[in-house]
Nucleic acid binder design. Structure first.
Lengths: 173, 173
DNA sequence: CCTAAGCGGAATGATGTCCTCCACTTCTAT
DNA sequence: ATAGAAGTGGAGGACATCATTCCGCTTAGG
C-alpha cells in the first residue's frame, strides 16, 4: 500500500469518527469524504461500502474503549471511581461512535469482552456499596448510548447528574 | 363540517401523535394516514402540509402539558413531588411529541407560559431544599427532550435514576 | 333522492444518496 | 529519469423515498 494511500485511509477514518459522532451513522458518505479532504471515489476505494467503514470504526472504538477501561482501573483503586472515570472519558471522547461500536453488528466477540469487563467492575462497585444494586451494566450501556445518539446534550452538564443518580443510597423521596 | 370528516380529523391527530412519538417528526405522511385508517388525500384535505399538522399537534400538547402541570400542583403540596409527578406523567404520556411541542416553532406564547410555570415550580422545589440548586428548568427540559427524542429508552427504568440525580445533597463522591 | 362534501390512492415530480467509472495525477522501484 | 502501477477526484447513472396533487367514486344528511 502506497504511503499516500495509507495517509488518506487514516484521514477518512478520523473524519468518519467526527462526522458520525456529530450526525449519526447514516450520514451521507460524501460528507465524510469532504471532511477527510478526499473525493468519494477514494473513500469507496478503501471501504467497499458504508457498512465496511462502520465496521472498521466500530472495531477501532471497541479497542479504544477497552484501553480506556484498563487505564481507569489501573489509575483508580476504587471500583466506582473507575466506573465514573471510564464513563466520563468514553462519553467525552467518542460520542456518537459509541453507538456504532456497541450497538453495531461488527466485532461481536471483542465487544462482548468489553461488556464483560465493564460488568465485572460494576459488580465490584455494587459490592463496595457505592453503586445502586438495582441498576446493572445494561443500564450503564444504555446511558452511554443515549449520550451517543443524542448529540444535542452537553455531556459535561448532564453526566454528573446521571452518575449521581446511579450512586447508592440517595435520599428517598 | 360533516360528522365523518370531524371523526377522521380526530383519528388523524391521534395517529400522528402515536407515530410521531414512535419515529420522530419527519415520519412519512403516508404512515400517519395509514395508521389513522385514511388515505393520504384525506390527510392533506385537513392539514395543508406537514408543518400545519405538526403545529396542530404541538398546540394540543402544550395545552395538555399545562393541564398535567396544574393537576400535579393541585394534587401535591410539595413542589419537588409535583415536579416528579409532572415529569413522569409527561414522559410516559407523550414521548416524542414533547419535542414537537417544546422545540417546534408553533404556539410560542403558550409554550412560553408553560415553561414559565414549570420554572416557578422548580424554583420552589429548590427553595425547599429538595432539588439541586445547580440545575434549572432548562436542564429539566433537556431531560424531557432526550426522552422525547430517544424512543429506545424505557422511561420507567431511567426516569427514577435521572430524577434521583436532580435531587439535593446526594452523597458526594 | 340529490348534491355538496368527502374519500382513497395511483400518479407525478422533487430530492437526496449510493456507488461506479474513467481520465488524470502521483508515487516509487529500478 | 522514467515507466507504469497505484491512487485520485468528482460527475453522473440508477435508484429509493417522499410530499403533494388530482380525479373518479362514495356517502352523509337535508
Amino acid at each position: 500500500m502506497r504511503a499516500d494511500a495509507r495517509r488518506n485511509r487514516d484521514k477518512i477514518l478520523e473524519a468518519a469518527r467526527e462526522v458520525v459522532a456529530e450526525r449519526g451513522t447514516d450520514v451521507p458518505m460524501e460528507l465524510i469524504a469532504r471532511r477527510a479532504g478526499v473525493g468519494v471515489g477514494t473513500l469507496y476505494r478503501r471501504f467497499a461500502d458504508r457498512s465496511v467503514l462502520l465496521a472498521a470504526l466500530a472495531e477501532q472504538y471497541v479497542y479504544e474503549l477497552m484501553d480506556a477501561l484498563d487505564h481507569a482501573v489501573a489509575a483508580e483503586p476504587d471500583a466506582w471511581t473507575a466506573v465514573r472515570a471510564f464513563v466520563a472519558h468514553s462519553v467525552e471522547k467518542s460520542r456518537g461512535a459509541i453507538a456504532a461500536a456497541l450497538a453495531g453488528t461488527s466485532a461481536p466477540e471483542a465487544r462482548q469482552a468489553l461488556v464483560d469487563r465493564i460488568d465485572e467492575l460494576v459488580r465490584q462497585a455494587q459490592a463496595d456499596g457505592a453503586m445502586r444494586p438495582d441498576v446493572g451494566t445494561d443500564d450503564l450501556m444504555e446511558v452511554l448510548n443515549v449520550f451517543a445518539c443524542h448529540p444535542g446534550v452537553v455531556p459535561a452538564r448532564f453526566l454528573p447528574l446521571i452518575l449521581d443518580g446511579l450512586r447508592s443510597s440517595p435520599p428517598s423521596s
